[in-house]
Amino acid sequence: MTDSSLIKGLWWKLLALLLLLYAVIYGFFIEVPYFEVTKESIRNVFYHVGMWFGMSAMLITSFIFSIRYLRGFREKEDIVAVEAANVGIFFGILGLITGMIWAKSTWGAFWVRDPKLDGAAVGMFIYLAYMVLRGSINDIHKRAKVSAVFNIFAFILWIVFVMVLPRLAGSTIHPGQDGAPVMALNLSGSTRIVFYPAMIGWILLGFWIMNLRIRIKRLGIRD
């Protein structure tokens, strides 16, 4: 291997590509359960839901690294926390947009009054507030500490708004509320062989983008 072709963690980056290629190709041809309201658009679960799986993986990472930062005040861990949250927000925006497109055809409007949708929107605002908070503090150590504390609250609030409240409300039209997410769609066994690889692929893609953002940020730090 020549020096310039060296990529760290090449295997899982290639795996992300293979899983998503598989999901995009086979996801169009596999037999899917028929619902009058969705018809073929049910295939969106391989892609739209992937945005939320990607976002969740990123926000969990961000949460863990904010806790780790508070235990030792290492700047490295603050960088992971903020970049994970950045990629999480990116996935979240894509999840909202793709959800709106699908909602328009399924429910007749881009946005409907619904605990799950409103919860997801509020969750996004909490993380946007995290970024605004970071931007408003100039001292890097103070910024890292204050935003790590905020991030821990943000994650718990996000779980409450996206996972807990829609279930308590009990009246959401968005599927995935009974027990494990998406199970309410009655995904047949054959659909799952696309669904789960697709979710892993989206999550790995998120980790790759996060990894690049962290490394680029570290390049700018002189020690």
Binding site: S4, L6, K13, A16, L21, I209, L219
Partner: peptide, 19 residues
């Protein structure tokens, strides 16, 4: 999809070189 991943690979290699 392949194009987007190729873009990521190129970026990853550049960052590795600078590192």
């Amino acid at each position: 999809l392949i194009g987007l991943f190729a873009y990521l690979f190129v970026m990853d290699r550049k960052v590795s070189r600078i590192e």
